[in-house]
Design a protein around this nucleic acid. Structure first.
Lengths: 356, 356
DNA sequence: TTGTACGCGTTATCAA
DNA sequence: TTGATAACGCGTACAA
């Protein structure tokens, strides 16, 4: 550890008290302008850097937010983080980023460290292996400002920012039904995770509304990763010809990517033999050989809203438990076999940076 | 701020001293096993969470690394962060993630906060508008363990983990030359940034080695973003027919994406009219309508190595200034007009999660 | 094996 | 307008 200049040393240098230095440096009233100037100048000359650790200890505030993501993937979470970062930066908070790698034990670990580091608030999207809610409840009861995003836990008094998963799933399912598909399969997410449950329930409700049977053999519970979708699709493809799905709704785009891989390996064509729809609108979705029809989740927005929520909690501007629902959008591409005039998928305005 | 249980309170509860509590909780020797058990049990019961802030203050160590990235984009930096996270997690460090949004002022800001927060080490990739190196030098002189990754500043006594940019650029340029292209343009990065300079110099040296003229009108300095590549390409396309390039080497994939967009808008074909090569191997590169030939930078590796470097510095296992060069790889796809049997680009094993 | 006194670097409080 | 003193919660050093 390098030797650091302290406020005390500045005080000694100038023959004044520590408190005056502190006041001057923090732009507090009751300091003679002349003194303030001298202090600031001396501090700069001596290379003073205020010790935030000491400050946090006495102020009981770290100006830091803890973020827990299940995965630092390529598309959704980085975008969410960007949203979080933008809001928190402008409010003077910094981010401790942790990731659970979809593992509940690591997540608990991360949460405990964040607690020990006394972050002012926590933003979290649960791991897919979440087992119980004790730790969230404990933190919530302790009064640690906390907000879930994307993957939430409800009814434990914690706010949440997410999309209307059930509605999005219904929208996708309806879209497939309206295009004449009869045997629509669903590669679902883990039922432990909110978005897994809600998307499944949306799928199911929409089938019912259209008088289609809910066929359990067409629903495979899997994880959120590409390989999970791949394995699940293989199981669906192993069904006898007459029972094989003519369309598949995957819980998210990653899962859909895996499913597509399995479908191609089995020499079926998309969408002719099997249509497919995803959820997320990953940046890769529109670039696939057969661009993927999907439900767009505004990741950046979700991040911003979630950050706004915790900050409001922290600063006491609000203490209600909110469920913020961000709207999704059905993005129709070729994988569902619909007649959209498919423009060249290369870098549409909507994705990435729209060069104008 | 919620009321927190302190070590002192545990001590009072048990009628022992704070120190015994501290020793018991930190698995230090010289505590009767029975006492230790009681302490641990009581701590759990009372919901004790050690205050890391206080601990950091006395130990002069925060167990935290500061990370500064210019952008939280979709591909390269998230992968680097994943690598950093993996190593630091296993060594007990947590990450404060800041981003400069490619803006030098924000970067300085971030660096100052990280300094104030007394992070144990800093990992940084410079913003494209970097102006001077004062702050890096100051931090380095102060003895703050610091490592650059990807975009480095050399000769100021700070370690760096990057790829051999010049060599990668030469490799790409040579590849284009060997395929008969004569007028190879370069959309370069900002000359202020190391990778901008080295890639340009690689391009230039390779041309020279092959006896090709270095034509200034074929070199356009731009930024690292998609729109920069787009604008730069438009300028190249505005050249008279005979002076127009037949191939373009873009400083990175994002820039190449923008260039491709401009080329298509001008109704030229890739690679027939104009071939193109990038640098990075963004996850989208292989998914383009005409998959992009590029130089692969092992982002995850870079992150891991960079994290290992700072941690070694922090723990005093090393105090030498290292320049770690990670190898790149030429990835040949269709955009350069070469005869590769182009397999379906959809989610090859190499990208994302290879479902097996 | 356990306890006491002090210090880490800052801010809050109250007195001057 | 300034300063002295006491926290903040923990670990170190030494004594018991």
């Amino acid at each position: 550890m390098s030797k650091r200049v302290t406020a005390k040393e500045i005080a000694e240098e100038l023959g004044i008290s520590m408190m005056t230095v502190s006041r001057a440096l923090n732009n507090r009233p009751n300091v003679k302008e002349e003194t303030r100037k001298k202090v600031i100048e001396t501090a700069a000359r001596m290379g003073y850097s205020p010790n935030h650790v000491a400050r946090s200890l006495v102020k009981q505030k770290t100006e830091t937010l803890g973020v827990v993501v299940p995965k630092i993937t390529h598309s959704f979470f980085p975008e969410v983080i960007r949203g979080i970062e933008e809001i928190s930066y402008s409010s003077g908070y910094h981010l401790i980023l942790t990731h659970s790698a979809e593992d509940f034990e690591q997540e608990k670990d991360a949460l405990q460290t964040l607690e020990s580091k006394r972050v002012d608030g926590i933003l979290i999207s649960t791991a897919q292996t979440v087992e119980d809610y004790d730790i969230y409840e404990r933190l919530a009861k302790l009064g640690v400002p906390m907000v879930f995003f994307d993957r939430c836990v409800f009814n434990i008094g914690v706010s949440c920012v997410t999309v209307d998963d059930e509605r999005g799933a219904r929208r996708m399912t309806r879209h497939l039904i309206e295009h004449g598909y009869q045997r629509i399969a669903h590669i679902s997410g883990p039922s432990r995770v909110s978005i897994g449950r809600y998307r499944l329930s949306g799928y199911r409700k929409e089938l019912e509304e259209h008088g289609l049977p809910y066929d359990e053999s067409l629903v495979v519970e899997a994880g959120f990763q590409e390989e999970d979708g791949y394995e699940a699709m293989k199981r669906l493809l192993a069904l006898p010809d007459t029972r094989r799905p003519d369309a598949v709704f995957a819980v998210n785009d990653a899962s859909a990517f895996g499913a597509i891989k399995a479908i191609k390996e089995a020499n079926f064509r998309i969408p002719d033999d099997i249509a497919i729809g995803g959820f997320t609108d990953d940046i890769r979705a529109e670039l696939l050989e057969v661009p993927l029809t999907t439900i767009r989740q505004p990741a950046y927005e979700i991040g911003k809203k979630a950050a706004q929520q915790v900050i409001e909690l922290i600063e006491g501007k609000s203490n209600t438990v909110n469920e913020i629902i961000v709207q999704t959008e059905l993005v129709i591409r070729r994988s569902c076999g619909c007649d959209v005039e498919s423009q060249s998928p290369l870098l549409s305005e909507s994705s990435a940076v729209g060069a104008k």
